[in-house]
Simulated assay, not measured.
Amino acid sequence: MKTLTLHLEGLGPSDLPMKRLAEYLCELAELYGAGGHLHFASVTKGSARLNACVDDDHHHKVLHRVREVANGVGPKKAKKAYLRLADLMLDDQASGVLESEGCRIIQFPRISKHQPLVVFKHGSIQGRLYTIGGKDDSVPVRLEGANGETLYCETDTETAAQLAPLLFKQVRLHGKGEWERRQSGGWRLKKMQIVSYEQLEKSSLKAAIGRMKKAGGILWDQIESPNEKILDQRG
């Protein structure tokens, strides 16, 4: 058996909810493409290291496939998995290095080679409120989205104080967001300035989660840019 390790710099095992870990492993399996010859091994401490083992006679095939994909060629599904992994790392504020048997194979891109399209638009997000803090007038607020991703927000001290009793509860936040085009398509929230909020009732939580999954954890209004039109994702 030969080792394959995705080293997520800036992200520890405790920062990886099980659902998020599953997303990484699913995309890695598609990227490696070794089928039944690939086996998950462990997640080691420090910066998270996702360890897998591959049969010796398939090791060189996996390395060849990964290097091809990093250079923009190779199977379509593998290229899509590569871009999806880059998006996951961008969402988690981590950088990734793929290593094998102690050698660096590829470095995942943290930022697109092209200037990403960024738009500012009022919208809504929802998830589990888990952080409110800071000593400045602009208070950082963090939500855990439907897929375990972190949604970055900020607000004034008055709104932060009102939100405090809702810590660790499901909420919907409204405000002006900065949205960035993903490399693999779709959009991600870089940051939102909160202007209002509401607590999600337990009776509607199941329905809210269903809507979050359909919208990738983010709800926003119709956006039009000079190049394209993004449809309302709220269904």
Rank of each mutant, 00 (worst) to 15 (best):
V97G: 04
L151E: 08
A70W: 07
D57V: 14
G96K: 11
D56L: 00
K45G: 10
D136F: 14
S42Y: 09
L143Y: 00
C153S: 04
Y32T: 04
V119I: 08
S112R: 13
L63T: 01
A81K: 01
N147C: 07
H114L: 09
Q93N: 09
H39N: 09
G145P: 03
D92L: 03
A52W: 15
G123Q: 10
H114K: 04
H39E: 12
L83G: 11
Q93G: 05
V97D: 11
A41Q: 12
L38H: 01
Y82C: 06
Q126T: 14
A78H: 08
D156W: 00
A146H: 03
D91H: 11
T157L: 10
E68P: 08
A41K: 15
G46P: 13
Q126E: 15
F40Y: 12
S112L: 12
A52Y: 15
R84Y: 11
S100M: 07
G145I: 02
P109C: 04
P116C: 09
G148T: 02
R84F: 06
I111M: 15
C103P: 04
L83T: 08
G74E: 04
V118Q: 10
D56C: 02
L90I: 08
H64A: 12
H37I: 05
L88F: 14
A146E: 01
R65M: 10
K135Y: 09
K121M: 10
G33A: 14
F108R: 11
A52V: 09
L151K: 09
V119K: 00
H122R: 15
T131S: 13
G35E: 06
T155N: 02
L117C: 05
Q93K: 10
G133E: 12
I111N: 15
H122A: 14
Y82H: 10
L117N: 02
E68T: 06
A146L: 04
E99V: 12
D55N: 10
H37E: 15
S124N: 13
D137V: 10
R65E: 09
P140W: 06
Q107F: 06
K76S: 11
S112Q: 13
F40W: 14
K61T: 03
L151W: 00
P109D: 02
P109I: 10
G148Q: 07
